[in-house]
Amino acid sequence: MPPETSALDTQRHGAALRWGFRLFLGIQLIPFIVLFTLRYELDGYYVAPTVNQWLGVAENILMLASLVTVWQGLTAIRENDRETMQRRLKWTSALGALYLALLIYDWSQRVVPVGTRFGGMFYTTIGVSAFYTAAGLFVLVATVVRTGRVVTDAQNHWDVEAAAWYWVFQGAIAVLMNLYLHWI
């Protein structure tokens, strides 16, 4: 920011960043709409009976728990509590990593053959959502490191906010996709 920037400009810039980030998350829904459409075209709502449904539930519980902790982190920084925020984000990363580990276990069981219509969509859809989760983990770790180095308080926490939003976005997607491919 150039020094002459006024408070009004900063506020407007913040609003632009938030709006642009929401737009970004909005367009990131589109790949999942594609996957949803293709699965519907190929399989309808068929779910292979060999799929381990309770593993899917366990994955979802982990992910939902991580959404709670990330939101607590955001609330903490809004109240100017940097240590709690960092702790909560670390918790979130741990839960996210655990979620991915469980997902890899789920995959390694090879309960559905890859070459079938359902199998193809099962692995691609969950795989794409896992990619978003992995990206979210990177962002969380970066945010934890970053908030230890630059001023982060109730006024300056756009980075935490963006990371939290992103994590919530990917979490919601992951939960929906798990339900969609394990249960519906």
């Binding site: 367009i27 990131q28 589109i30 790949p31 709409i33 594609v34 996957l35 293709l38 190929l42 890859v114 070459g115 079938t116 219509r117 199998g119 193809g120 969509m121 692995y123 691609t124 794409v128």
Partner: peptide
């Protein structure tokens, strides 16, 4: 984003290979 996802599917279709 739509065409990117489509191309990723085509790439996976080829590499894995899937039968999409």
């Amino acid at each position: 984003p739509e065409i990117q996802m489509t191309f990723i599917l085509e790439l996976l279709d080829r590499l894995v290979p899937l039968n999409l």
